[in-house]
């Protein structure tokens, strides 16, 4: 069974590597959205520093939403998904592996580019570090929870817009904790509670979200 899952991981990664467009688009989206804020709000350093964690987090959240469609979309259209459902491995694990591959190519680049954005918005080194850690903990949750929405809206009219409506309410706690953690550093308050809760959400989403997404896939592919 491990070899099946390993092959699946390699397949998903190599598929993306042969069409790097998807990774580049998500990162470009993040950078462009963040760049718009100084233009729209104010180039004032103090203002930018105040809104920086929220701006980067919201932009990362939207970038994740953008990529959700390709999570199962291509496999659904060319019939691979039905084959995956028939694998002799539990569907929950199959989904988990697909999500891991997806996060490595779309979530991780967002995390890696975030220090650059932090500098752009005038955050101090300590705050950039915290921003990096919260995104590292938070973007996997966004991908995990988003998989449920992606699976439910497979092949549905206007699925792209619908998945935003479905997922944004569920993303609220992650956004609050992620952006809030950086703000605590700015205010000089304790940071541990935010990170602990974010970690708790990740620990909760890691087993439950793939399970729910697997159930959703079974509903969508009959």
């Amino acid at each position: 069974m491990a070899s099946i899952l390993w092959t699946l991981l390699k397949r998903d990664l190599s598929l993306v590597m042969r069409r790097r467009q998807d990774i580049v688009t998500a990162v470009a989206f993040l950078v462009i959205v963040v760049t718009l804020f100084p233009l729209a709000v104010s180039p004032e350093q103090s203002v930018l520093r105040e809104i920086a964690p929220g701006v980067v987090w919201v932009a990362a959240l939207l970038a994740t939403l953008l990529t959700l469609e390709r999570l199962f979309g291509d496999d659904y259209r060319d019939g691979t998904l039905e084959q995956l459902l028939l694998l002799p491995a539990p569907l929950t694990l199959v989904v988990l592996v697909k999500l891991a591959a997806h996060w490595l190519v779309t979530g991780l680049p967002l995390v890696l580019v975030s220090p650059l954005l932090g500098m752009q918005l005038g955050l101090a080194a300590g705050e950039i570090g915290i921003l990096f850690i919260t995104l590292l903990l938070g973007t996997p949750i966004l991908t995990l929870v988003g998989a449920i929405g992606a699976a439910l809206t497979l092949g549905v009219r206007g699925g792209g817009a619908l998945v935003v409506v479905l997922m944004v309410p569920l993303y609220v706690p992650v956004l609050i904790l992620g952006a809030g953690a950086v703000a605590t550093v700015t205010d000089g308050a304790g940071l541990q509670a935010h990170l602990s809760l974010l970690g708790a959400l990740l620990a909760l989403a890691l087993p439950l979200a793939p399970w729910a997404a697997a159930a959703a896939l079974r509903i969508s592919v009959q």
């Binding site: 449920i148 439910l152 809206t153 549905v156 009219r157 206007g158 699925g159 619908l162 409506v165 479905l166 944004v168 309410p169 729910a212 159930a215 959703a216 509903i219 969508s220 009959q222």
Partner: peptide
């Protein structure tokens, strides 16, 4: 927003059985 998501998903799927189960899961 949660209510609107439920209504939106239920309306967006044409197949009645699938719509019912997907919206229930949501």
């Amino acid at each position: 927003f949660l209510y609107l998501g439920y209504i939106g998903l239920h309306n967006a799927i044409d197949d009645r059985e699938r719509a019912a189960r997907a919206a229930s899961l949501l």
